[in-house]
């Protein structure tokens, strides 16, 4: 108990009050600048009827469904690659981490260039294989896949967590497997994966939470418009617009609590359904 006291105090002071306040605001007409006025369920009733809420929720769900698994897969493969004792590996580790430290403004402009339908790198490469690439950020159908591709490239953080996690896999397990004649792939599947499951689980939960609030890059890349045709209008972007552009902080709070509930449900489902697969070596409960 004593050990967790910082988080308890922190929760009360810096998290508890703001969270409860936002819950209260969600039942208020609160423009942000004038004091809140209680209106009961008004904001929530409006939420259900707002087509942009539905649209942005679906966009966010689609983005999460693509970016979370893809990000974990890429980070995992990279971590495996970077865990080899190769000369100069430190340089590669740094390089693969680079995208996650380049400022969003810079990376967004770069990716717009990569995705440019006519002159972009990606369609240029696809063209070499005789494929006529799609319009990416200029096409409502392909804009989200483009953002998902972009997200897999910024997985440096997850990669580092996996890399650190790989150090906990006992070496003698591999040695034993080697003796039993297991292939590399089998070793990965039967030793590395189970031992990494707490970290993959972590990445999955955090990826889910992160994806539910994703919007910054899409905001910068589309100039805040969620274009083309609302296809990149993410839930958090619409929430941001309501809070800081439309003077509807109360409505934004209601949106936030809806998102909170949905994320919480998704997280509980993930916790419950994966409990059997996550292997905590140190936990003998």
């Amino acid at each position: 108990m004593l050990f967790t006291s910082p988080v308890i105090v922190g929760l009360l002071l810096f998290t508890g009050y703001p969270i409860l306040a936002s819950l209260y605001y969600s039942f208020c007409n609160f423009p942000g600048l004038r004091p809140p006025v209680w209106i009961g369920m008004g904001n929530y009733l409006q939420l259900i009827k707002d087509p942009l809420v539905t649209k942005s929720l679906l966009n966010t769900a689609a983005y999460a469904a693509g970016s979370v698994p893809a990000g974990i897969a890429v980070a995992f493969v990279l971590a495996l690659l970077l865990n080899q004792p190769v000369r100069g590996i430190a340089v590669f580790r740094t390089i693969f981490y680079l995208p996650s430290i380049v400022p969003a403004v810079a990376s967004s402009v770069l990716w717009l260039w990569v995705f440019n339908p006519q002159y972009g790198l990606l369609n240029g490469v696809l063209g070499l294989f005789g494929i006529n690439g799609p319009g990416w950020m200029a096409d409502p159908v392909w804009a989200k896949p483009a953002l998902i591709i972009m997200s897999t490239w910024g997985v440096g953080g997850t990669m580092i967590i996996f890399l650190a996690g790989l150090q906990d896999v006992p070496r003698e397990m591999y040695e034993a497997a080697e003796i039993d004649g297991a292939s590399d792939l089998q070793q990965t599947a039967h030793i590395t994966l189970p031992f990494m499951s707490p970290h993959i689980f972590f990445a999955f939960i955090m990826g889910l939470i992160g994806a539910s609030q994703y919007f910054t890059q899409a905001y910068i890349m589309t100039g805040g418009a969620g274009s083309p045709a609302n296809s990149t209008l993410f839930f958090a972007m619409y929430l941001f617009q309501n809070a800081f552009h439309f003077f509807k902080m109360g409505y934004a709070c209601a949106m936030a609590w809806l998102l909170f509930l949905l994320t919480l449900i998704a997280t509980i489902v993930v916790f419950k359904s994966t409990a059997r697969y996550v292997y905590y070596r140190g936990d003998n409960q």
Binding site: T15, A243, M249
Partner: peptide
């Protein structure tokens, strides 16, 4: 606490 977007707190 992480599931609530920062903008509203």
């Amino acid at each position: 606490t992480m599931m609530l977007p920062y903008q509203v707190v």
